[in-house]
Amino acid sequence: MSDLLTDAAERLFAGRAATEQGFDPALWAAVAEAGFAAALLPEDAGGAGTTVAEAMALLRTAAAHAAPIPLAETMLAGRLLALAGLAVPPGVLTLAPVRLADRMALHRDGGGWRLCGSASGIPWARHAAAVVVVAEAAEGPAVVRLDAGGFTLAEGRNLAGEPRDRIDADTRIAAEAAAPAPFDAIALHAAGAALRSVQIAGALAAALALSVQYAQTRVQFGRPIGRFQAIQHSLAILAGQSAAALAAADMATDALARALPPLLVGAAKARAGEAASIGAALAHQVHGAIGFTREYRLHRLTQRLWSWRDEFGNEATWQAAVGRIALAAGPDGLWPTLTAA
């Protein structure tokens, strides 16, 4: 990761007090202007030549500032379009389906296509210029660019107030807006899990920093509460969970740069999710009542952690996926399988 890029991102996000619960259009404009939204695109599709690791460092920084913008979704949706050889439009992009139970179908319709189906929990759909859908077609999985206006929308939101909308489509799709997909909806789900792992690591690191800072300044019984051993040990555990989440984010980054091996994605999302649960609880405990208020900013991080750990598969879902691989490897294959991950 180039320090230049991280520093630029840090300045951009830190310069704004992100008080908004919904979408921050001005911040998004600045992020798009800086090229961050295109960070996962190949250069011939409008990317800036950033590596997957650099893109994930940007995402982690955005998450550390609880930036209310669809950076993860736009990054990934654009990459999916580019991988399928479709043009990447400017503006906010998002993905569907994000839940394994949701399916969307693509049928031939004259010279073009028709996309049918619904999907729930679609991040930022109300703000999106297009939803990138991985649909099932007779020929196999297809990538479809579903433009705004081509679907009906029911608004919803996650615990942090981030838009999570339901979309319904029965829509004609132009021939040039669909293409065979070199991946399926399972891979899309795995990629989403990888991005959420990275975001969790960013938000948890920020929750740790905020908690340490608070413990150093809040005085009770005549001294900063961080001088009490009980608080020190809580923060030490939180630091351990944050380190584990960062390791998980690095595994997720490796997985994205490769073909999303389920062992790596699963271990990343499962471990990051567990770190989010333990870490968010400790951050609140250290903060006491102030952390429980709307006014103080801890909730912007913890509410995201509590949402992100469940999005694209919770810990148990991914632990089971990892467990199946480990059990299939058997006693003699277990260690070689883990070291090859």
Binding site: Q319, A320, V322, G323, L327
Partner: peptide, 14 residues
């Protein structure tokens, strides 16, 4: 069992 073993493996990998 898958969940429990998977959790231990995820921890080991991290």
């Amino acid at each position: 069992a898958q969940v429990a073993i998977g959790r231990l493996c995820a921890h080991t990998l991290a």
